[in-house]
């Protein structure tokens, strides 16, 4: 009797692990997850199982996001999925390190990044315009 219970527990554990790691075709995803992961629809079935699993965990948090966060999430999702595991890990470490900086300094860095972005956006325009004027 005891051996039977132990065997059942082992089978249940193994089944649960197998189920968690199994790849899920796009059509089998719940509608909420499909909505969250919509930008990845074309390449979903070719993604590794582990990556699919991680992305599905992210998708579970998607309904709790604000509108602008949802927009950012979907805009960045394809870029994120195209990174190598090492690149993603490095990004996580950088983000964790950045999170540990005091809030004031973090805000300063954010402002600097935004200013740099604004300059980068303006540069191609100003670079193209003189060339167009020249004969």
């Amino acid at each position: 009797m005891n051996k039977l219970i132990v065997a059942m527990a082992v089978i249940c554990t193994l089944t649960a692990q197998t189920a968690a790691a199994a790849p899920e075709p796009w059509s089998a995803l719940p509608p909420a997850e499909r909505e969250a992961l919509a930008p990845l629809h074309p390449q979903w079935n070719s993604l590794p199982e582990k990556q699919q699993h991680n992305l599905r965990i992210l998708a579970q948090h998607y309904p709790k996001l604000k509108m602008d966060e949802k927009r950012r999430f979907q805009n960045r999702l394809v870029t994120w999925a195209q990174l190598t595991p090492a690149q993603r890990q490095a990004a996580r470490e950088k983000y964790r390190a950045f999170s540990q900086i005091p809030a004031e300094k973090r805000e300063q860095i954010k402002q600097m990044v935004k200013q740099n972005q604004a300059v980068k956006i303006q540069q191609p325009v100003s670079g193209v315009a003189p060339a167009a004027v020249q004969p």
């Binding site: 948090h61 950012r72 999430f73 960045r76 993603r88 490095a90 996580r92 950088k94 983000y95 950045f98």
Partner: peptide, 25 residues
């Protein structure tokens, strides 16, 4: 469930993803 994965924070932060991703790796 309570813990927002760091991946989600990177993907939703107001800083662009490029700040944290090294494209040359």
């Amino acid at each position: 469930d309570a813990q927002m994965p760091v991946d989600m924070e990177i993907l939703t932060d107001d800083l662009p993803i490029e700040v944290f991703v090294d494209q040359h790796e």
